[in-house]
């Protein structure tokens, strides 16, 4: 448990540092380009680099503090109150006491698909999100299983890493997209106006362009590596320890895995959900590129737990 928390914190720090380095490098490349293009002696590269570094620091801080709001906005979730749904409210309150964490805020996504996720930067700022379909179709024991799973993500600090990744990696994707486009257009114009401008510059930009092209699949792989599928298993077993009833989550997963599609989910947020929000189809073609372990495997492990002693 504590090992997992430490791991998540370290990974978060690495990702933030990686992000800063990336943005600073972009700033430097941009400055270097301007220096070269307009022949001003090498001040812009340093200036742009410092500017980019400051920007990266501001972005990292704001993503640390506001990423949960961004994620909630991206998934169009809205808060639900005690009056609106006392059933879920009392369950979350009780289970968070059993987990020994402060009670998280409760949000809901208007979607008939069954899914759930947790977000926030630490347990004190935790949020659990359920779809309407999940709340309406699961019985009490199953719902408690799902809640316990999400609470253990909060307790393990999985939410910090998962949520920061959504925002920072999303920003990198946008920035590399912009640069790639401007490179294609800028390159075209330059070639037509000044045919002698090639040489080192075109080589540099070709390399930079290729680098960015390679980057997007690397980013996708990075997400999958950072968010190892093991943490779903870990959250399943910690969750069973909270609810003291592994069969509840196993039954819930059986129901969820058939109807887990959520419309508002995107590639950036998919890894947060308890079950693959694109439904079961993707899982069939490649196990390797999946953020979620197959439901059958999870159910099997949970059922083995209920046979075991002590829980």
């Amino acid at each position: 448990m504590y090992e997992q928390i430490a791991k998540n914190r370290t990974k978060t720090v690495f990702i933030i540092i990686g992000f800063m380095v990336f943005i600073t490098m972009i700033g430097f490349a941009l400055g270097y380009y301007i220096d070269y293009r307009y022949g001003i002696s090498g001040n812009y590269s340093i200036l742009f680099m410092i500017f980019a570094l400051i920007l990266a620091i501001i972005m990292s801080f704001s993503s640390y503090y506001f990423s949960d709001r961004i994620v909630l906005g991206l998934t169009k979730a809205r808060p639900i109150s005690l009056e609106e749904n006392p059933r879920i409210y009392y369950m979350v309150e009780g289970l968070s006491i059993a987990a020994g964490i402060p009670m998280p805020r409760i949000y809901m996504i208007e979607d008939t698909g069954m899914n759930a996720f947790a977000t926030g930067r630490n347990p004190a700022n935790g949020v659990v999100v359920f779809t309407r379909g999940l709340l309406e179709n699961l019985n009490d024991e199953e719902l408690k299983g799902v809640i316990s799973h999400e609470l253990s993500h909060i307790k393990n600090y999985d939410i910090l890493l998962g949520t920061i990744i959504v925002v920072l990696v999303g920003m990198i994707a946008i920035i590399s997209n912009i640069i790639l486009r401007s490179f294609i257009f800028g390159g075209g114009r330059r070639r037509s106006s000044r045919s002698s401008g090639g040489g080192i510059l075109s080589v540099i930009f070709l390399v930079l362009g290729l680098l960015l092209l390679i980057l997007s699949p690397i980013i996708a792989t990075l997400i999958r590596m950072a968010i190892s599928r093991n943490r779903e298993f870990l959250a399943d077993s910690t969750g069973a320890l909270i609810s003291r009833y592994p069969a509840g989550l196993a039954n819930a997963l059986r129901k969820i895995s058939k109807h887990s599609q959520v419309e508002v989910a995107s590639n950036a947020t998919a890894h947060l959900f308890i079950a693959n929000p694109f439904g079961g189809k993707k899982a069939a073609f490649s196990n390797l590129f999946n953020t979620h372990p197959p439901a059958e495997e999870r159910i099997k492990r949970l059922e083995n737990m209920s046979l075991g002693v002590g829980v």
Partner: peptide, 17 residues
């Protein structure tokens, strides 16, 4: 009654913890 049920399950969870 609804409130009482909520509190009683919270007591049970707090006891577990």
């Amino acid at each position: 009654m609804e409130q009482l049920n909520g509190i009683e399950s919270s007591i049970a969870y707090a006891r577990q913890f």
